[in-house]
Amino acid sequence: MSLTDLQLSTTERSGGRVVVAAAGALDLHTAGGLYTRAERLLAGHPLVVVDLSGIEFCDSTGYNALLRLRRRALEADARFVLAAAPPVVGRLLALTGADMVFEVHETLAAALAAHPAGGEG
């Protein structure tokens, strides 16, 4: 995998929850792939968690895709949660104040525990 690649995998969880694991670069060339996948999932799932633990690079296009997905989740009456943001993403979220806008969990396990299947979390 080169720095210009983004690998995405989707895992269905109980209770309509779904996890999209992203690894590689979230940038001008790859952000559209994440956006398209997550947007489709928001239509049929009450919770979409994006596991960012594998992200090595994120530019403004990747950041914008995350913001747009948050807005789409609100429109779809779904939840859009970020998990395991590496320092490269965490700094971007903190510098822009978006860490106060997104629901961000330190780990994927913490994100799923905050939203148990069939629970109100």
Rank of each mutant, 00 (worst) to 15 (best):
M1H: 13
M1G: 15
M1N: 09
S2R: 14
S2D: 14
S2M: 12
L3N: 07
T4W: 10
D5S: 14
Q7S: 09
L8V: 06
T11R: 15
T11K: 14
E12G: 08
R13G: 01
S14F: 01
G16Y: 11
V18S: 04
V18L: 12
V20Y: 05
A22Q: 06
A25W: 02
A25F: 06
D27Y: 06
L28P: 00
H29M: 13
H29N: 13
A31V: 07
A31D: 06
A31Q: 13
G33W: 03
L34F: 07
L34A: 09
L34P: 05
R37I: 04
A38V: 14
R40V: 07
L41H: 04
G44N: 05
P46L: 11
P46N: 10
V48R: 01
V50M: 02
V50K: 00
D51I: 02
L52A: 13
L52G: 02
S53W: 09
E56Q: 12
C58V: 14
C58F: 10
S60Q: 07
T61I: 04
T61N: 13
G62P: 08
Y63K: 06
Y63S: 09
Y63Q: 09
A65W: 08
L67C: 12
L67V: 12
L67Y: 00
L67W: 00
R68H: 13
R68A: 14
R70C: 12
R71K: 15
R71I: 06
R71A: 13
A73G: 11
L74K: 11
L74M: 10
E75Y: 00
A76Y: 01
A76M: 11
A78R: 08
R79Y: 04
F80A: 01
F80C: 08
L82E: 02
L82R: 02
A83N: 01
A84Q: 04
A84M: 02
A85T: 10
A85P: 11
P86Q: 07
P87G: 06
V88P: 09
V88L: 03
V89S: 04
R91C: 04
R91G: 07
R91D: 13
L93Y: 05
A94R: 15
A94L: 06
G97A: 04
G97Y: 01
A98L: 15
M100D: 15
M100P: 00
V101P: 00
V101D: 00
F102N: 03
E103I: 10
E103S: 15
E103R: 14
V104I: 15
E106R: 15
E106M: 03
L108S: 10
L108W: 00
L108E: 02
A109E: 15
A110P: 00
A111L: 11
A111H: 01
A111G: 09
L112N: 02
A114F: 07
P116I: 05
P116M: 09
A117N: 02
G118T: 01
G119Y: 05
